[in-house]
Computed example of a mutant assay.
Amino acid sequence: MTSINGRSASESFKAQALVYRHMFSILDPMCLKWIIDSRIPNIIHDHGKPITLSELVSVLKIPSTKVDRIHVFMRYMAYIGYFDITKVRIHDGNEEEEKEAFALTAASELLIKGTENPCIAPLVEFVMDPLISDSFNYLSKWFSDEDRRLYEITLGKPLWEYLDKNPRLLGLFNDAMAGDSQMIKLALKDHNMVFEGLETIVDVGGGNGTTALIISEKFPALKCIVFDLPMVVESLKGFNNLSFVGGDMFDSIPKADAILLKLVLHNWSDDNCIKILKNCKDAVKVSSKSKKGKIIILETVINEEQDEPEITRLKYLMTLNMQIIHGRERTKEE
């Protein structure tokens, strides 16, 4: 028995399910934003143990008419990996009852605000801000426009220029980058040898210095310089072995034994990346002693043969996002 275009009914139903899954998956980031806005990871963290639905809605002050809906949302977020569903024993007078409870997972632990541990919740808040996320509704208009970038079409000017004029969004962006930079703590555990023997390092595009601070604390004898646009670093003050310098990486970069480029190159075209890398080479060529000079690049690398399918899918989504900004994620060869 065949369906449309000579395909079996089973094949067509699977195709329909694929379309529906992607259509309704718009709810995934919205639900993620909801648990962050409601501070649910913090609530469970502060609770100190798995939390029951009744305890959660009590903290959230949810109307009784919405309790069942909260339950559906929480069970879905557990299904996609943000919570674990477990059982706890509740004492009520002389009786003991076993109830369902929600516990944190590795994913929701990364959304807890206000602790010393890495938190990437600000990145979600920035990407899901309506001024940013609504722009994706205009992809067709962007593709048909010869010159302008997506955010120029939707915001009236390039993204970085728009952020500079919008303190609220700029604050969100800086918090997002700082939160993402905290993850470097995990990388440093296995890659200390990259920084050994260095006396000076420049973190190009280092923002508010989160990454450089982590490195400077790990290597107190290493002089760390955060290099970014003057408007970014003008109000930031250095201390101990950490300092801030304003400038433009397309003009020149302060000289040091090593130059760090963390998530910089993916913002730019190949031609602009070559300009940046040439300036990095000039910066390490003069001052480096012996073979100390190095350029350290931290970027997402697309590797379909090595990565799991879900990781590859994520990397392709990231490169779609960077294409909109005018950059790209790259393969190792690229």
Rank of each mutant, 00 (worst) to 15 (best):
T200S: 15
M249Y: 14
D203L: 09
F195L: 08
I225P: 00
I215M: 07
N208E: 12
M231F: 08
F250S: 11
K189G: 12
V194C: 03
G205H: 06
I215Q: 05
G206H: 00
V245Y: 09
M249A: 03
N240S: 15
G207V: 03
V202P: 00
G247V: 05
T211I: 15
L222C: 01
P220S: 12
L188N: 02
F239Y: 15
E196R: 14
D203I: 09
C224N: 01
L213A: 14
G205E: 07
N241I: 13
T211N: 02
T210F: 01
L222R: 07
I201T: 04
I225T: 13
N192T: 14
M249W: 10
V204R: 07
V232F: 05
I225N: 00
N192W: 07
V202H: 00
F195E: 02
V245W: 06
G207Q: 02
F239K: 15
L242C: 09
K189C: 08
K218S: 14
I214V: 10
N192H: 11
G238S: 08
V245A: 08
F227S: 01
A221W: 05
L188S: 04
P220L: 04
F244K: 03
K218E: 15
I214R: 07
L242W: 10
N192G: 09
E196P: 05
N208D: 08
F244R: 03
G205R: 08
A221V: 05
H191F: 10
M231K: 11
S235L: 13
F239Q: 13
P230Y: 06
L222H: 06
F227A: 01
F219I: 07
L188D: 04
G197T: 09
S216D: 04
E217D: 14
T211C: 13
G246A: 02
K237E: 12
D228S: 06
S216M: 05
K237R: 11
E234N: 15
V233Y: 03
G209L: 09
E217L: 11
G247I: 05
C224F: 03
V204H: 08
S243A: 08
G209C: 09
K237V: 13
G246Q: 03
